[in-house]
């Protein structure tokens, strides 16, 4: 007697049915992304951390407790890597799955639900974050930027939370778009200013008070500050809790928004 098809018992079991799909897709594309995910961090660490950092005085009082500029920007670059990976994965690819290839329509014609399809896709995005940030962490380790091993491990794990906090709302935004033209603005007016002004490259207190307040409202700053406290071993419990809570709330709100937007889009 042949095995029958079935309905997943929970959303994670449903998402797990998509693993083979994502593995096959990744096998097709991994070479291009693997090289860039190794080379790019190396370039940043060398150019910004080592070479530019030579001109910056390694004064812990000026650098939030970091003993050199390289040590200061390393956690910022790591957090930015998580953010950039997510921006790349949940903009054009999401539109492709809806509009260009209609892959999602095939998936939701099966027993899988819209939530399970999103969960499966976000699972893949988290895999990509884990990979690019893992490579970044390993590339930076020999430069002595991590005060403790535990700090390095926890800083790495924070990137999943930060990535998810970006992934769900941007996914939701992408899921409702009719065409891809707003993505260019999302990158130029969203991701790049976040990258430059959220405390990755300079202490946020160097900004005017109102700009500093603005920067502190962004998810990337929360991710950068949390990561930096872990890599420098200057963790402050209550501040860390605020960062984690901010990122969790953003990820959860984004999730519900994403399910709503994609359901509306798919059901029509």
């Amino acid at each position: 007697m042949a095995t029958d098809s079935s309905v997943p018992t929970n959303a994670f079991a449903g998402a797990a049915r998509l693993v083979d799909y994502w593995v096959i897709v990744y096998k097709r594309t991994w070479k291009g992304s693997a090289i860039s995910s190794f080379i790019t961090p190396l370039f940043y660490v060398l150019a910004m951390g080592v070479l530019l950092g030579d001109y910056v005085e390694g004064d812990p009082a000026q650098l939030e407790g970091a003993s050199s500029y390289l040590v200061f920007i390393a956690p910022g670059l790591l957090a930015a890597q998580s953010m950039q990976t997510v921006f790349g994965e949940v903009t054009y690819p999401v539109m492709g799955m809806i509009k260009w290839h209609k892959t999602y329509f095939g998936m939701t014609a099966s027993p899988l639900t819209v939530s399970e399809v999103i969960l499966g896709h976000l699972g893949f995005v988290m895999f990509r974050v884990g990979l690019t940030c893992g490579v970044f962490t390993l590339v930076m380790a020999p430069f002595g930027v991590f005060a403790t091993v535990w700090g390095a491990v926890l800083a790495y794990l924070v990137q999943f939370l930060l990535g998810l906090a970006f992934a769900t709302p941007i996914y939701a935004f992408s899921a409702g778009l009719k065409d891809e033209s707003p993505f260019a603005l999302v990158f130029r007016l969203g991701m790049i200013p976040l990258f430059l002004f959220s405390g990755a490259f300079f202490p946020i207190d160097n900004l005017d008070p109102w700009m500093a307040a603005l920067a502190k409202a962004t998810p990337l700053w929360h991710g950068v500050d949390l990561t930096r406290m872990l890599t420098l071993d200057t963790l402050d419990g209550s501040t860390a809790l605020v960062h984690v809570a901010y990122l969790v709330v953003l990820a959860v709100l984004g999730w519900f928004w994403a399910v709503r937007r994609l359901t509306r889009r798919m059901v029509g």
Partner: peptide
């Protein structure tokens, strides 16, 4: 709604997996 960039066989294979087979 086929995935154009993977093989004929893989299209069928991944679809069967969606059904929990």
């Amino acid at each position: 709604t086929l995935d154009l960039e993977i093989t004929v066989r893989d299209n069928l294979f991944v679809y069967g997996r969606y059904f929990g087979l």
